[in-house]
Amino acid sequence: MNPPTHSNQPDKGFFSQLANSKSADEFVKGLWRDNPVFVQVLGMCPTLAVSNSATNAVSMGLATTFVLTMSNVLISMLRNFIPKQVRIASYVLIIATFVTITDYMIQAISIDIHKSLGAFIALIVVNCVILGRAEAFASKNTVGFSFLDGLGMGLGFTFGLFCIGTVREILGNGTFFAMQVMPESFEKWVIMVLPPGGFFTLALWLLIFKGYKLKKAAHE
């Protein structure tokens, strides 16, 4: 990544700024423009399964963010060293390592969170967001950019899970982060914490995002 440092042409002057704005862009794109959940619609299995409460959604999102960022960094560091033929196997090995590390760390933080995330921690290995970023980004970009990309995508994934988890928890259980927010008389929509609720909520958010994008495009 060597942006031309000096030039008389005005459009090249823009390039030198790009070095800074590009890093901001690599970070922000995962949060909004290329959000893994709402725009790329990747990693739907954990999205639907672990978003039944805000706590689960955020802990799963942060666990994924950690794995994504760390594996992006390591893969980017080793990108010139890994032979092309075995790259996917190498990525899976690296991702699995960080998933194992995450598993230990979550157990050290709280056994209860570990229990409620259950088998889904191990399933982070096959989360297509992570392998997707490794293949599409980390294997072609510098360590710094890969770090930002991983962090942005991970936080975007967390944000997506949080949006779904909040709606499902409030409607399905009357609580938000296990705090009572709905009046006692509120009749819980049990279906929202069950698997169909995940589909309904996801569809609702996708509708909102798509509507917003279309509206914005129409303005431009």
């Binding site: 080793l78 890994i82 190498s90 090995l93 699995a96 390592t97 590390i101």
Partner: peptide
């Protein structure tokens, strides 16, 4: 070599 090296690095982390 590369797979073994990655394996060793990963094992070390774990």
């Amino acid at each position: 070599i590369s797979m073994t090296a990655i394996g060793v690095i990963c094992a070390f982390f774990i």
